[in-house]
């Protein structure tokens, strides 16, 4: 039944997002949970539309219908007073029934959306001002690794994200997959979702978290399961050591110019914990938590002056000569 309603409403729903091919939209569900939520939303929407229209019709008819001629304001018609009392009471009762019905619909939806699967793939996400630390944790430490701002998951498999914050409150939200959940300081929250289709789903911090709240995005890549397996094996490996001289120079400068104080590149001496793990930065699609699309130019602009692109973020501007900058960019781009 809800599904049929949905189909009927598809033209309406897709209208405003004709151009927006499922990037970040609650109206474009690609997960089990977002789909359920949208169905609930449509039920509510229909009820709301009917009620609003009814109110407008009654209002218009009431205003436009033929009226008694001018009389004393207190010369009331007893019949009307009685009837209107009954009608108001009846409508009040109808309102009560509607809201109780909607509460039940809502709670049913809530149970489905928040249903827990014991065998979900678990990852931990830690919010930072203003980026996302993503930890793939496994019983075996050799299978555990850390990445940032991009999350890869297999399609069709329930995923559980454990949400924590390193500083202030953030909120994890990938509307195309499911609703949001806050990352709260000193508290562990979790959220489960399942991607139905492969694709890239953008997410964004939804709780105001300070100066650069607007630039705290991330992407969820839903991969077919075997593709996911390959990615995971690759991601678990250390960063590729550069072989060319420029790359080697970049690696050396990465340590010498202080980058390594904050950033980790597994397999090298760079082991800083304050900023995002850069072991496979070369394979990422954006720079600075979704602020810029990944390219040599973007990487260069970011490293040259992070405060220009994302004012107030915690990465300081490092004095680099242009040759040094090129070497570092070259090195980072190799870290696929």
């Amino acid at each position: 039944m809800p599904v049929r309603m949905r189909t009927a409403l598809v033209p309406f729903a897709t209208l405003p997002l004709a151009a927006c091919a499922g990037r970040q939209s609650a109206l474009d569900p690609q997960g089990l949970q977002s789909n359920h939520i949208l169905q609930t939303l449509f039920i509510f929407l229909i009820v709301a539309a009917v009620v609003w229209t009814a109110v407008v019709v009654v209002l218009c008819v009431g205003l436009l219908r033929r009226k008694r001629s001018a009389v004393q304001p207190l010369a009331l018609h007893q019949g009307f007073e009685r009837t209107s009392g009954h009608v108001v009471f009846g409508l009040g009762l109808a309102t009560l029934i509607i809201v109780l019905g909607l509460s039940i619909v809502s709670y049913a939806g809530q149970r489905t959306v928040f249903a827990k699967n014991e065998h979900a793939l678990t990852l931990k996400i830690i919010g930072h001002q203003w980026w996302w630390e993503v930890r793939y944790e496994d019983d075996s430490p050799h299978q555990s690794f850390v990445t940032a701002n991009e999350i890869r998951i297999p399609t069709g498999q329930p995923v559980k994200v454990e949400l924590e914050s390193a500083d202030v409150i953030h909120s994890f939200w990938v509307p195309s997959l499911t609703g949001k959940m806050d990352l709260i300081t000193g508290q562990k929250n979790e959220l489960q979702f399942t991607a139905k289709n492969a694709g890239v789903y953008r997410g964004q911090c939804a709780e105001f978290c300070g100066l650069q709240h607007a630039h705290m995005a991330f992407a969820v890549f839903a991969l077919l399961p075997d593709e996911y397996g390959r990615w995971r094996d690759h991601e678990n490996q250390s960063g590729t050591s550069p072989t060319d001289p420029l790359g080697k120079q970049g690696e050396q400068l990465f340590r010498a110019r202080g980058c390594a104080l904050c950033h980790t590149i597994r397999g090298t001496l760079a082991g800083g914990q304050l900023g995002p793990d850069l072991t496979h930065i070369g394979s990422r699609t954006t720079v600075a938590a979704g602020t810029l699309p990944m390219s040599s130019a973007a990487l260069g602009a970011w490293i040259a002056d992070p405060q220009h692109i994302k004012p107030g973020n915690n990465m300081p501007r490092m004095p680099l000569q242009s040759g040094e900058l090129i070497a570092i960019i070259h090195y980072l781009e190799q870290l696929k």
Binding site: T40, L41, V51, W52, V105, K180, E207
Partner: peptide
Amino acid sequence: IGFILIFVMGGLSGVMVASVPIDTQVHD
């Protein structure tokens, strides 16, 4: 009259945000 038209709509969208699953999408 403007109040009635607008407020009723606000009330109805309020019923929507009161629903936990819907709110997880539209909150904030």
